[in-house]
């Protein structure tokens, strides 16, 4: 068998697999709608503000309602020592200013 035939067959299999995964993604999105609605209702009824992604520190468990200078909240030189602190950006924005 020619080398190019093997290569094109490999690319074709890869493209078909890739397309199948994209179809899987679309299907899974439709199937998860019910679950997302249920989670949305839970958030609404419990009045939750955050997702439960990192439970190790309070400012990574609830980044939306964390103190403004989260990483330095314990004292001015307290550098962030939680690994998830490097994934969660500190809250910007805010209305508390004059």
């Amino acid at each position: 068998m020619r080398n190019s035939t093997i290569f094109f067959a490999f690319v074709a299999v890869g493209v078909i697999l890739f397309a199948t995964l994209m179809l899987h993604s679309q299907r899974a999105l439709l199937q998860s709608e019910k679950m997302l609605v249920a989670n949305g209702n839970l958030v609404g009824s419990l009045r939750l503000t955050d997702l439960c992604l990192f439970t190790e520190a309070r400012y990574t468990r609830h980044p939306a309602v964390a103190d403004v200078h989260s990483a330095f909240q314990d004292h001015p030189m307290a550098l962030d020592h939680f690994p998830s602190g490097s994934l969660v950006t500190p809250p910007r924005f805010r209305n508390e200013g004059p």
């Binding site: 503000t49 955050d50 997702l51 992604l53 980044p63 939306a64 309602v65 690994p83 602190g85 490097s86 994934l87 969660v88 950006t89 809250p91 910007r92 924005f93 805010r94 209305n95 508390e96």
Partner: peptide
Amino acid sequence: ARPILKSEILRTYDSIFDWRGGMI
């Protein structure tokens, strides 16, 4: 008082894992 708006809550999660963040 410190009001935190829903748009800010959503923005917090939009900027989570921001490309400027440490590990990312």
